[in-house]
């Protein structure tokens, strides 16, 4: 049994500053893994290496047993990995629906199919009534939602979520959590999520990886992580304060 995603000792430095060093973890198909850590810990950097924004200085990334290290973002997407951006990147001049259609084109043969798929995803995420609005007119929570919708429309096997719940109200967070649970249960969607909202991580993730200053300092179940003294010191403590 091999993992769906295997991250093997990836590192990245920016101008001498080590943003990620020898990060390793695995993710089985159908699993939900949380990636947490204080600001600047290197979480987004790890995402960007997986998603092909830049290659790791060292280490490999494997998806479905295939080495995808150093591939371009569009190739990574076609390998079955969808991602959202922490700093949202909507296609502002396009409508919400057109935004999602662009995503759906990755998984559909024709534009008509993509339109149908987009409508389905918009319904699922509760964006259907805003479908005709230009994306630049959306509120931040809706933009986060649109990030998710677009990535989902590509029909990924693995979804990378970068702080999609940040800035959401608790009710919105709960709705989002419910949607991811449902997708995970019903379509076996594998999820890797970076999240600061602890109640979302604790509710969703079966396992958690904790990063601090670019290094993995703990891996375990949510209960183990919550009980880990190192983690409490560097991260959970500050959250509780």
């Amino acid at each position: 049994m091999s993992a769906l995603l295997a991250v093997d000792g990836i590192s990245k430095s920016f101008r001498g500053l080590k943003a990620a060093s020898a990060v390793s973890f695995e993710l089985d198909a159908g699993a939900i893994l949380g990636l947490i850590g204080p600001n600047g810990a290197g979480k987004t950097t790890v995402f960007n290496m997986i998603a092909g924004v830049f290659p790791p200085d060292e280490g490999r990334v494997r998806m479905d047993g295939r080495d995808i290290t150093g591939k371009r973002p569009d190739q990574i997407c076609r390998a079955g990995i969808g991602r959202t951006f922490q700093i949202v990147k909507p296609f502002g001049g396009l409508t919400v629906r057109e935004n999602v259609i662009v995503g759906a084109l990755a998984s559909c043969k024709t534009v008509a199919d993509a339109e149908r798929e987009a409508d389905r995803v918009l319904d699922l995420l509760g964006l259907a009534d805003k479908a005709r609005q230009p994306a630049h007119a959306l509120t931040l929570p809706d933009r986060k939602c649109l990030e998710v919708a677009r990535a989902l429309a590509t029909r990924p096997k693995l979804l990378l979520l970068d702080e999609v719940m940040a800035g959401l109200r608790p009710t919105e967070t709960d709705r989002m959590v419910a949607i991811f649970r449902q997708l995970n249960r019903e379509s076996g969607l594998t999820i890797l999520l970076i999240e600061h909202v602890m109640r979302a991580v604790m509710a969703l993730a079966q396992r958690i990886v904790v990063l601090n200053t670019g290094e993995v300092i703990a891996t375990g179940t949510p209960e183990e992580i919550a009980a880990d003294q190192k983690v409490r010191d560097c991260y959970l403590g500050e959250e509780a304060a």
């Binding site: 998603a51 924004v53 371009r72 973002p73 569009d74 997407c77 076609r78 969808g82 991602r83 951006f85 990147k89 909507p90 296609f91 502002g92 001049g93 396009l94 057109e98 259609i101 662009v102 995503g103 084109l105 990755a106 534009v111 993509a114 677009r150 990535a151 590509t154």
Partner: peptide
């Protein structure tokens, strides 16, 4: 404009990084 390529173009115009992340060979 209404074709796949038209969507790709407009996506690239609006945000190239997002377009690429959605599988478009920019």
């Amino acid at each position: 404009l209404g074709s796949r390529l038209g969507y790709y173009w407009r996506a690239i115009r609006e945000d190239q990084d997002a377009a690429q992340a959605l599988g478009i060979d920019t």
